[in-house]
C-alpha cells in the first residue's frame, strides 16, 4: 500500500525517506524553493519552501514525509510570508533585473513573480559587491548572490573541486572562490562544471552568452515557475 500525507487537502504519495518537497514535486505539486535542488543534499537555508506541518512552520526540503501528516503550503498566509522572504533577498543584494542577463531565466525573479511581489517593500542595503570578470569565459556578479550555496555543493560534491565557499557571517556573508588572489581566473573552474550551471540567479554567468536567447523567449516567459513542476528543477539552458 502506498503511504500518503495530505498537502492542501490533496493526498500525496511518498516513498519512505522522501522529504515533503520531493514527494510534492514528484506528484506535480509545486512548492516554492530556491536553495533546494534534487541532485544535492538539502540545505534548508532559503526557507522559501516553508510549509506548515500539523500547524507548525518547517522547511519542506528537510522535513521527511510521513503518513498522515497534514501539510499546508499554497495558502495566503504562507505565500505572504514567502513573499516577505523574497523581498528580503531583493533588498539584501543589488537586484537590478533590467540590466541582468539572467532576467527571464532567474529563479529568484520567477519566484517573486509567482508570489506576486509588486515591490521590495523594505529599505535597500545597497551593498558594495565588486564583480569578478577575471576569468576569460565566466563572470561572477556577486551583487545577485542569495547565498543558496548550490554552487558550493555542486563544486564540492559533483565537480570535486570546491571552487566556491561561503565566507564571513550574518549580513556580511558572501561567496568566495578558491584562490589566494580571490579571483576566479586563478581557480581550476571550468565552464563545463556543474557549479557553473546551477546558479539560480545571475551570479555565475558565461560570458558572451547573456542574450543568445532573447528576452521574451526565456524559461519563465511562457510558463510561470510554478508551472515548471518537473521543470522547476530544470537548469537554465544558455547554449
Amino acid at each position: 500500500m502506498t503511504q500518503t500525507f495530505t498537502l492542501d487537502g490533496q493526498e500525496i504519495p511518498f516513498t519512505p525517506g522522501q522529504t515533503i518537497i520531493q514527494a510534492a514535486l514528484a506528484a506535480g505539486v509545486f512548492i516554492p524553493h530556491l536553495c533546494y535542488h534534487p541532485e544535492f543534499k538539502p540545505h534548508g537555508s532559503c526557507k522559501l519552501c516553508t510549509v506548515k506541518v500539523n500547524g507548525r512552520h518547517t522547511a519542506s526540503c528537510t522535513f521527511k514525509a510521513n503518513t498522515g501528516l497534514q501539510v499546508e503550503s499554497n495558502t495566503e498566509e504562507l505565500n505572504a510570508e514567502r513573499r516577505t522572504l523574497v523581498q528580503m533577498l531583493f533588498v539584501e543584494g543589488n537586484h537590478f533585473c533590467p540590466s541582468c542577463e539572467k532576467s527571464g531565466n532567474c529563479q529568484l525573479q520567477a519566484t517573486a513573480y509567482d508570489l506576486g511581489m509588486m515591490s521590495p517593500h523594505f529599505d535597500h542595503f545597497f551593498p558594495d559587491r565588486p564583480v569578478d570578470a577575471s576569468h576569460p569565459e565566466l563572470l561572477l556578479d556577486f551583487n545577485r548572490c542569495i547565498l543558496c550555496s548550490l554552487c558550493v555543493r555542486a563544486s564540492r560534491d559533483v565537480d570535486g573541486k570546491s571552487v566556491f565557499a561561503l565566507a564571513d557571517r550574518g549580513i556580511q556573508s558572501h561567496l568566495i572562490v578558491n584562490a589566494e588572489s580571490g579571483q576566479l581566473a586563478d581557480t581550476n573552474v571550468s565552464v563545463d562544471d556543474k557549479a557553473v550551471q546551477v546558479c539560480p540567479v545571475g551570479v555565475i554567468l558565461r560570458k558572451r552568452q547573456g542574450f543568445v536567447v532573447p528576452i521574451g523567449e526565456r524559461t519563465y516567459d511562457e510558463l510561470p515557475i510554478s508551472g515548471h513542476v518537473h521543470g522547476a528543477v530544470t537548469l537554465t539552458e544558455e547554449s
Binding site: 531583493f90 543589488n94 537586484h95 537590478f96 533585473c97 533590467p98 540590466s99 515591490s119 521590495p120 535597500h124 545597497f126 551593498p127 558594495d128 559587491r129 565588486p130
Partner: peptide
C-alpha cells in the same frame, strides 16, 4: 503610485550606490 523599476527599487541610477 510608484511606476517602473527606478521608482520601485532605484533602478539603473541606483547602480552608482556602491
Amino acid at each position: 503610485i510608484a511606476m517602473g523599476a527606478c521608482a520601485v527599487n532605484g533602478g539603473l541610477p541606483a547602480q552608482r550606490n556602491h
